[in-house]
Simulated assay, not measured.
Amino acid sequence: MTRFRDDPEADALGQALAALRKARGLSQAEAGARMGVTSQAWGLYEAGRRPGMFRPDVQRRLTAALDLTPEDLALEMARQPVSPTRAAERLEEGGRAFSANGTAGSVRRTLQLRDDDLAPWAGSGVVLVYDLAVWPRRDQGCVVETDDGPVIGLYHRGDRDTVVLRGPSGDKRVLERSRIGSVGAVVARLEGVGWPQ
């Protein structure tokens, strides 16, 4: 049997899915039937224990079963708090407890892209929701807050002195940790939200 490590991001996604299902007045069995899976399978998604739950096609199927969109799920996820204990443990266990500054809970921020430098991953107008309490996985989008402003890219690697991001075309950017204030994983990309400029 596969064992899943606690993952605050997966937990938040599962909690958001459960909140949306309950708001629609559906049981896990009813939601699962609409998606073509068992109530147990649906329950694993809500528990954050189902592989592939971050894939866009899976999120489209999950939200379609609730007559919603992946954007609805992302917005609900942005509202869900990350367990303070789990967030702190996740930063500690990877030996990457960087710029947590004692922050134990979710610290979510938004940033709207103004250009297409990250296309096709994300284009102009897309709003990124990033969480400073969640360190990015390899090839996950992240926002690095530096002295010169935010730097956005796909996380490649990090060590004691640097953080390396790569762009969609594969180009790499090395950032010195001495110039970095914080690093946060992108937990949602919202398109067509119509946020104020």
Rank of each mutant, 00 (worst) to 15 (best):
A12Y: 01
T2Y: 15
A87D: 02
R96H: 12
G48S: 07
G105Q: 10
V58Y: 07
G192V: 09
V183D: 00
R24M: 05
D171T: 12
L17N: 04
P196T: 15
S178C: 14
P168E: 06
E93R: 09
R189M: 08
V127Y: 01
L132D: 01
E71R: 13
G43R: 09
R90P: 03
G36F: 10
V107S: 13
R86I: 11
W42V: 02
D67L: 13
R96T: 11
S178G: 11
R86E: 11
M53E: 07
G102H: 01
V186C: 03
V183R: 00
R3M: 14
V183G: 00
P120E: 13
R96F: 03
V127G: 01
G167E: 13
E176V: 12
L190R: 00
D161R: 15
L13D: 01
R177F: 02
T63Q: 08
L62A: 02
A10I: 07
F54R: 06
Y155M: 10
T38V: 05
S39Y: 10
D148S: 08
G25N: 06
L111T: 00
G194E: 09
V82W: 04
V107R: 11
W42S: 02
M53G: 07
L91D: 01
E145M: 07
R138E: 14
E93Q: 11
G170N: 07
D117Y: 15
P8F: 10
L118N: 00
T103P: 00
L62P: 02
D171Y: 13
G192L: 03
E191N: 08
R86P: 05
G184A: 02
S27G: 02
A29G: 14
G170L: 10
P120D: 03
D57L: 12
G181F: 05
L132T: 03
D6W: 05
V163C: 03
W42A: 09
A122P: 01
G170K: 08
R173G: 05
D171S: 14
V164I: 12
W42M: 13
G141F: 04
V174W: 14
L62S: 05
P136V: 04
L91C: 08
G181C: 11
T162R: 04
A87C: 14
A16F: 07
R96C: 07
L68G: 04
R60G: 07
L75H: 08
V37K: 02
L62N: 01
P196C: 09
P136K: 00
E89A: 13
D11V: 07
D7V: 08
M1R: 15
A119M: 07
V129Q: 01
